[in-house]
């Protein structure tokens, strides 16, 4: 298998934009989001924002307007694929005012079953509708033998599995006609037949398929805690030039296991690891995920603002260090 690349970054080759700091759009917040959107259509130029590498405008922390405080939104693709009604109405209103990125949970890129063309067709039409510059899903399987488990399940970390995933990732990208970013999942048990470390497996998949990496910093932290590994070494071992986006989220500690439940604020060690990442690669499109015990919209916005401040501070430190 191939190893870590030194080629021009994935971000440059595919003109992946820096979108700034965002939040996930969740049904619970539909009313609050509609209320906080500007009454008039925004003047952001979709093509310019996405493809010229422009950075988002500075934000106003005291404003009650959503667009003054977050730069973009992430949606769970499956919540909008083939759906109309209120979900699509809210998505359309949001897309009038800010960039939207689709993040899927059921591509099941590692599955033994053929890729689902109904899924890919609906996904492509969603990506077209929202002008997504890329799309993302997880490096895992969530179905097998025509059963959908609706969970992000770890594959064996083996060359055989990596080749299998990479082959399917190329097919999926061809179908959707956009770059794909695969996310590192949280895994609680290393599967039988694993002959590699997670970072090696992930690198093999990304390099072989020529995919972007959606780096979930909470997952890195949770996995390293659960498996007794060093998160900095993990960052050393993956192709950081392929990172197109970052996920941040909360987790809970059950004693015997840390669970990636997206049910609380981002923890201090995860913020620290995020700062370390920004010191290494600079500011990166970031979203805070929150899927259980979802708080008020304002709490999510505050988390995105902490991400912005953390990245700004880390980037300043890094730049100062480089100048010395």
């Amino acid at each position: 298998m191939t190893t870590k690349t030194l080629n021009p970054s994935f971000v440059d080759r595919f003109h992946i934009p820096f979108l700034g700091y965002g939040i996930g759009l969740r049904r619970k917040h539909f009313d609050a989001v509609l209320h906080a959107l500007p009454k008039e259509p925004s003047h952001w130029n979709r093509d310019k924002t996405f493809f010229s590498g422009n950075s988002p405008a500075p934000k106003d922390n005291h404003s009650t307007g959503l667009c003054d405080r977050v730069d973009w939104m992430e949606i769970v693709s499956e919540n909008y694929m083939g759906f109309g009604g209120r979900p699509m109405f809210v998505l359309d209103r949001c897309a009038e005012h800010m960039p939207i990125l689709p993040h899927g949970v059921n591509l099941s890129i590692g599955s033994p079953d053929p890729l689902c063309t109904d899924y890919l067709t609906k996904l492509k039409s969603l990506c077209d509708k929202i002008h997504a510059p890329f799309w993302s899903d997880h490096c895992c399987y969530s179905s097998a033998g025509n059963v959908y488990f609706h969970d992000l399940l770890p594959l064996p970390f083996s060359e055989e599995a990596a080749r299998h995933v990479a082959r399917r990732a190329k097919q999926a990208m061809d179908y959707v006609e956009r770059p794909l970013a695969l996310e590192n999942i949280s895994y609680y048990a290393k599967m039988p037949y694993s002959s590699m470390q997670e970072a090696e497996f992930l690198t093999a998949v990304l390099e072989d398929a020529d995919c972007g990496l959606l780096l979930d910093i909470n997952n890195v932290y949770v996995n390293c805690q659960n498996h007794g590994e060093d998160p900095n070494l993990f960052l050393d071992s993956i192709p950081l030039s392929r990172v197109v986006q970052v996920h941040l989220a909360g987790h809970r500690d059950e004693g015997w296991l840390r669970i990636d439940d997206h049910g609380s604020a981002v923890s201090a060690p995860v913020w620290a690891l995020y700062a370390e990442l920004v010191r290494r690669i600079g500011p990166i499109t970031t979203v805070v995920e929150w899927d259980n015990q979802i708080p008020e919209l304002s709490v999510l916005i505050q988390q995105a603002e902490i991400a912005r401040e953390t990245a700004k501070a880390a980037h300043t430190t890094q730049s100062a260090g480089e100048q010395r």
Partner: peptide
């Protein structure tokens, strides 16, 4: 398949997760 190097309890946890999701 052979055991998971992470132990049976963690391996078995995946059945609980899938059941809870469904």
């Amino acid at each position: 398949l052979g055991p998971s190097s992470s132990g049976s309890r963690r391996f078995a946890f995946y059945r609980t997760l899938v059941r809870n999701d469904h």
